[in-house]
Design a protein around this nucleic acid. Structure first.
Lengths: 233, 233, 233, 233
DNA sequence: AATGAATGAGCCTTCATTCAT
DNA sequence: AATGAATGAAGGCTCATTCAT
């Protein structure tokens, strides 16, 4: 059924660039419409290529989508600084939280895409996208684990749960923003989360209230004196 | 002559009942296959009615799905006891958390449906399903708000954030279970979350769990000394 | 992605008729273009229905195609008389061969379809179409088997091979006709095949075909002579 | 500077060799996957050339496929010995049949390709592949024709039909083997076919039965005498 | 009110062929 | 001469929705 075709003259691009173009076009379309509503045709048209071209680079739609998310995330991750420069558990936690919130504020499209659309996919957990997202959360878990080890944190709650607590809270707080419906205050949220977790885990109460202690000591002392006194009698 | 002798035995039901039947059938199909894979045809067949009939009661597939989720949730909510019988902020929080975890464990299908499949819908927030889910979370928020009001909790973190922290954590912790991949320990998770939030928010630095206990011991010891002293006197 | 649709008003047909219409339309298209070149769209257009309608009745293209072939063949088979009225192995073989040749001459399209296009399908042998075609060949095999049993045929060649010989020959002889390139002479081919097989298998060396015929003529001639003689006497 | 340092090591071959390489590669792919499933890309990759290169030597896929079949067959034909050494019509027929059966057994891939996949092509008969296959069948036809000429065979059946009978039978008998489903016994099949055809065509019945003839002759004589006698009266 | 046959846009994917490099 | 990126028509199939009965 071969048909006569007039190939449009699309200049041949250096390898990698075409694929990058497609990925970029896909980002745009996805940002506009979301995963489900994004068709291969739409991506192709946006990229100014034919549908078939997409399949030169990506075996299936899902693979393409996954790659979009990965590349997007990777790019953001690359901009990231390490934790080395920051001292103190609270500061570190606060920084990590703040960093993610900032990413969401500045990159709502990719965030929405990854968190809301890719994550529900049945295969998501076996994806390298999943692995990539773990890089964000792993830091938090590590900081908590270190705090536990050093005795700064109690050890009655697992670092994994703390991580889930932090990121679960972040997601909920940013939910409506990601859906273009609301907003959130980065610093306020970051402070709040860091505070609750830190105070909730701190081995030593941050502020002291030793009135009970002192009262007890006075009482014990008094009791001891009375006992001695009574023995002397 | 003698045509159409075979009447379909679909008794004409009161409108409410027919619609309830459909909703029930839809639940079953959804529980089996999930949202995406559930077709209107499948629901109709399960309910023993024609596809067209579905559209008498629900304008679109989405509306039907939403109603399924709502009714499902409502039914679960109805079984629920109030908080009246429980005293103490920690106990109350722990109870509310435990209650949700228990619901997820016993009703994974509806949980998966609401959290994983309906929530990503673009219209979700304007849905009465969303309002309904708030009923679960509202209690937590209220308990926190009361604790703040009574001075038991600090007021530097909004109850909404605490609510998000708690439910975000719950979701992450149950994620793999809802996807039939893993599991979670109800009591452990409930304790951990309640502890972190409670300790993290307590106005009075919370004594170590056993501090009161020890104080009591010392008091009793002192009391005993004094008793002995007074007897000797 | 529901779109606004204007349903064309295609009158609702009694069950079975629509499917029959489709099958008929498919026959036409297939007869014109052959299996591979026949698209579901073309069939639908020919039947005056939408593509989706085809899928109400046939799960896949292959199923539809198979059904076309089956129905076609079945219809032809139904017209067929039994062998009861025919006596003698040679006559029976000749009849069976002639019958198939006649079918091919009058129904080249279905023949081409079944023999050339459906048969190469990987699944063909597990098809009920295959079973159906066996009905044609089974008679030949049976006649041969009976001839062997009665001692009329030698038993050094299996009936299956004879069947293959006969039908293989028929196919080759009609090949070019089925491809609209040539022709074949029914009686000549039927005679030839029947003769070779019959003579090749006859336990008693077979007289030339026309020997009996000629003997008859001579007998009649002699009888006439005697009649004339007796009248004169 | 220093660009394009990495030259592809595709040495510029004499045109005939390059084309031969492609043909060989195609054979391999076809043998593995069959005609339909063989893509130009696969052939190109196997041959270590680019897709475009294929089109330098073959205008279309079909042309390439046809050439593959031709070359393949030609190679097999070349290995073949003549008939000169074999005496006797039965022996010769048997040899020719055996030879083809043997080819099929040892070269199922090419057999399948030619018989099952190329032959159904609409253009097949005008192909030089078709001409080539005639070389196989021509011998049979010739042997039969000679037998007719020498009086060894009757002349009431055309050699072409005998050829079709033989090859048609061979195809049916090997059908399931070529589809990797069954098997066949070379010697048994060769014997059977040769026997049926030979005995079916032998001019002199192997054993005589002239009783009918003699009875007829007596009857005729008697009738003639009676007629003459009556005329005299 | 209920039916369910019919719709058809739209989806993902394939691959023979072209042609700028 | 050789490449291989790019093409794009075509295909099979799905399913929410409509509406004549």
């Amino acid at each position: 059924m071969a048909s006569k075709m007039q190939l449009k003259s699309v200049s041949r691009l250096p390898p990698g660039e075409r694929s990058a173009e497609i990925l970029t076009a896909a980002r745009v379309v996805i940002a506009e419409r979301g995963y489900e509503a994004t068709s291969m045709l739409a991506i192709a048209q946006h990229a100014g290529v034919a549908e078939g071209t997409l399949y030169r680079f990506f075996k299936t739609k899902e693979e393409l989508m996954l790659r979009v998310a990965e590349d997007w995330l990777q790019a953001l991750l690359a901009e990231d600084l390490g934790l080395e420069s920051i001292r103190g558990t609270w500061n570190r936690l606060r920084h990590l939280i703040w960093r993610v919130l900032h990413l969401m504020r500045t990159q709502p499209a990719v965030s929405r895409f990854v968190l809301i659309e890719m994550r529900p996919l049945p295969t998501y957990r076996s994806t390298s996208l999943f692995t990539l997202t773990r890089r964000f959360t792993a830091d938090v878990r590590m900081v908590c684990a270190e705090a536990v080890k050093s005795g700064e944190f109690r050890n009655d709650v697992s670092p994994s749960l703390l991580r889930d607590m932090i990121f679960g809270c972040i997601e909920h707080q940013t939910w409506s923003f990601l859906r273009r419906e609301g907003d959130f205050k980065i610093d306020e949220v970051a402070d709040s989360i860091a505070n609750v977790v830190f105070r909730g885990m701190a081995a030593e109460p941050v502020a002291r209230d030793d009135r009970l202690e002192r009262a007890l000591e006075r009482l014990e002392k008094a009791a001891a004196q009375m006992e001695r006194a009574s023995q002397r009698l």
